[in-house]
Structure formats: structure tokens, C-alpha cells
Design a protein around this nucleic acid. Structure first.
Length: 387
RNA sequence: GCCCGGAUCGUCUAGUGGCCUAGGACUCAACCCUGUCACGGUUGCAACCCGAGUUCGAAUCUCGGUUCGGGCG
């Protein structure tokens, strides 16, 4: 064994590719599959680190590029790293900032050896190389880092996507080399983990190429990027299947950006272990609530005087204490408390969904669970039982 | 009783004879949101106070009525 594996598979589902496992990090272990709330700037919107603890969110993801720009990775390093800075006891993951290449607010241009970013905060320009990105993520002190990838856009031509995966592979090799070098004196078990990111748009052959190339590098885990961005679900699932077939079975696999409940279950059934997304938090603020009975559009008038909790079976403090009518009113009035309550519930729901998924995988009943939830979620809105 | 001014979607309004089957904002309703996330996007509902004139053509001009505000008795 040339490297100790940070990932252990503990159970495999019989009828699907779903598996349950444990990811070991220097900050402790976490059971897979799991979902990470997005804390881009070291805070999940409307949610405190204490809230994260309460909802049992054992890992969150922040953004290295955005934190490098503000407050600066030097500041966070001085404060003892992201985890100490925000006093979060769970596992901190940092995304490289590759995703920001999709935004004209950030991207100036990509070159062979790196990417020019513009700071939308003060207009300063920064050339970020794979090497520099590794230094930033190490300074930020997260427990898991992501490679700097070159994420193509859905509207890019096949040729452009081909070029992007070539660059992504090239940078991945540089990231791995630099990351190893910078941590060479750090004892085993205290090292930050590093994941490589696969791309390829929705082209089967490019997804194959990218996964094959990335598999050559001894990463602690692999990510599938560039999906859940508006492409058809069948294409998304197909791309996952293709890359999962090639990526090493014994490494964790992270589907970046996915956060729709059914999408998570579909991905888990195809062997995905980790997720992150702003989907549940953004939807919460805008009135779409995830429940065990399906999606609840809380802003609809039928909930105006509904005394029921958001989700009857839910054990979160929001459902134990507050009515749909109250949360609807607060959200309609754009009260921060309403956003907090709705956000807490949606995140709790996903944590719970992951916990159930792990349990069902261990029982070998994941397929039945997934199909049941899918059926429930086919309806676009759950009716009010009170009226 | 007389004089003056105003009446446009639920609300605030754009509109000075054809560009108005009346535009916008807010509200309301429905949908969307996926590694960039407070205040976002798309779509929909919805009005020229009433009547008579002038004119090829009126939300727009004239007259009467209604109504609201102000002034004089």
C-alpha cells in the first residue's frame, strides 16, 4: 500500500451501488453518505455553528478563493484555521474556487498554468496557480481540500470541454505534488486530505477520459464536478454512472453541488458518498420546504392559518415549536427569523435523510427506501391536512 | 348654493388626440432555484368614474352627471 486509505466501506447495499462508509480525517471521522451545508464565508446563511452541532451536521464546506480574498487566508491562519475561527467542531472542507470560473464576476481568464481572478470586493487581480491554491487551502486549515479544477460551462463546445478536462488533469497533478510537498513533515493522520475533481460536461467519452486520468493520481477521494447545473437529470445520472465505473471503488466519491433530496438518493444508489449544495438553504428562504411527505410550498395561501408544523414527523426544534402559518408569515415579511427557521428545518431534513440512507444501506433496503421517497416527491406540493 | 382643482390595475403611478388590445413599481398567485446563496429569476391576475359629444381616430379635447379635496356663502 503506497498510502493509507482514509476511507473504509462498512456496508454495501444489495440491489444498488449504494454503500455506507467512514471517512477518517484529522478532525475525526464521519459516516458516509453525508451532506455538507455550504458555509462559503465560514457561515451557513442564518445558521450558527451551534445550530450545525444541533442538527448533527458533521461537515461543512467553505470557499478557499472567496476566503483568500476576504478576510485573507493569512488572517484565518493566524486565527488557527477555519475550524477554530468559527468554533465549529465538525469537519471543515474547502472548495478550491474552481467553480468561480463560471462567474464573470470572478473570472478574468484561464491560462495554461493557472487562472486570473478578479476580486469583486475591491477590484484587485490575482493569478492563482494550482500550487498557490494548495498553499491557500493549507493556510485556511480545512481538513479536506479540493484540487483547483477548470470547470467548463454547459454551453461550452465539446472542444472547449476537452480543453478544460486536459487542464484540470494537468492542474490536478500539480496540486497533488505540491500538496504532498507542503505536508511532507506532517505526521500521518494529521494531514489535510485532498480530492481530485472530474469534469467532462455531459459527454460520455469526455467523462470517461477525465475519470480515467484522475484515477491515475493517488487522491484521498474523488469528486464529480460540473453537474447539477440545469442539465437533464437522466444525463446527470448517466455521467455519474460512467465516472463511478472508472473511479477507484475504495475511495470516497463526492458529487459537487447536488442538494435536491431525490437527486441525493439517486446519486447514493449510484455509489456517491458526499454532497454539498446551497439548494436546501436557498429554497428554504424562498419558501420551498423539504418534508417526509414531499415538497411544501409554504408561501401558498392554503397555509395561511395552518397550525401544523412544517413536517409532522420531524424532530427538529422548528417543527416542535412552530406552525406553518407562522413561518409562512415571517417568510412573506422577509423576517430573518423566518429564514432561519426554514433553513434549519431543510438542513435538518437532509441530515436526517442521509442518516436514514445509511441505515437503509446497512439493512440492504436502500432501493425500497429510495423508491418510496421518489413516489412521495412526485407530487409538486403537499396539501394542507388542516383545511 | 356658487367657484376652483382632482378622478387610470388592490395600492402608488406613467400617460398632453394615433407609438395604449394602456407602461412601471409594490402587492397577490404559480413555477424555478443545486461546488456564486439576505433583499433572486420567469410567468400570470388586475385599471382609463358614468353618459353624451367633437374627430377618420379619445385615457388624452368639450359638455353634463357622480364623487373626492379646497375656498366663498
Amino acid at each position: 500500500m503506497k498510502s493509507s486509505n482514509a476511507f473504509t466501506i462498512t456496508a454495501k447495499d444489495k440491489k444498488t451501488k449504494a454503500r455506507a462508509g467512514i471517512l477518517h480525517t484529522r478532525k475525526g471521522k464521519i459516516e458516509t453518505p453525508f451532506f455538507m451545508p455550504v458555509a462559503t464565508k465560514t457561515a451557513v446563511k442564518h445558521i450558527s455553528p451551534e445550530d450545525l452541532h444541533e442538527m448533527k451536521a458533521k461537515a461543512i464546506i467553505s470557499n478557499a478563493l472567496i476566503l483568500f480574498l476576504r478576510p485573507g487566508s493569512d488572517i484565518i491562519k493566524k486565527m488557527g484555521g477555519i475550524g477554530k475561527f468559527m468554533n465549529y467542531k465538525g469537519i471543515n472542507v474547502t472548495d478550491s474556487g474552481g467553480f468561480q470560473m463560471y462567474s464573470e464576476k470572478f473570472l478574468i481568464k484561464t491560462e495554461e498554468n493557472g487562472v486570473w481572478f478578479n476580486s469583486p470586493f475591491d477590484g484587485t487581480k490575482h493569478f492563482i496557480t494550482p500550487e498557490k491554491n494548495m498553499q491557500i487551502q493549507l493556510d485556511l486549515g480545512g481538513d479536506v481540500a479540493m484540487c483547483l479544477d477548470n470547470m467548463p460551462l454547459m454551453e461550452n463546445t465539446k472542444g472547449e470541454i476537452e480543453e478544460a478536462i486536459r487542464k484540470t488533469f494537468n492542474w490536478a497533478q500539480k496540486c497533488k505534488k505540491e500538496h504532498d510537498k507542503l505536508q511532507k513533515n506532517i505526521p500521518k493522520g494529521k494531514k489535510q486530505l485532498l480530492f481530485g475533481i472530474c469534469q467532462g460536461g455531459i459527454y460520455e467519452d469526455l467523462r470517461k477520459t477525465s475519470a480515467t486520468e484522475m484515477s491515475q493520481i493517488d487522491f484521498d477521494g474523488f469528486s464529480i464536478g460540473g453537474l447539477a447545473l440545469g442539465e437533464e437529470k437522466k444525463d446527470e445520472y448517466k455521467m455519474i454512472e460512467i465516472q463511478k465505473q472508472i473511479l477507484p471503488e475504495n475511495k470516497p466519491c463526492y458529487l459537487m453541488g447536488a442538494g435536491n433530496p431525490i437527486e441525493l438518493l439517486e446519486a447514493i444508489s449510484r455509489g456517491i458518498d458526499m454532497f454539498d449544495s446551497r439548494f436546501p438553504t436557498q429554497n428554504a428562504r424562498r419558501g420551498t420546504i423539504f418534508t417526509s411527505k414531499g415538497k411544501l410550498k409554504i408561501l401558498r395561501k392554503e397555509y395561511k392559518t395552518d397550525k401544523n408544523p412544517l413536517d409532522k414527523g420531524c424532530k427538529c426544534f422548528v417543527c416542535k415549536n412552530h406552525s406553518r402559518a407562522y413561518i409562512r408569515h415571517l417568510l412573506l415579511r422577509e423576517e430573518a427569523t423566518g429564514m432561519r427557521l426554514a433553513t434549519f428545518h431543510n438542513l435538518y431534513f437532509l441530515q436526517n435523510l442521509m442518516e436514514k440512507s445509511r441505515a437503509e444501506i446497512k439493512k440492504g433496503k436502500f432501493l425500497e427506501f429510495k423508491n418510496k421517497m421518489k413516489k412521495i416527491y412526485q407530487k409538486n406540493n403537499i396539501p394542507s391536512p388542516a383545511l
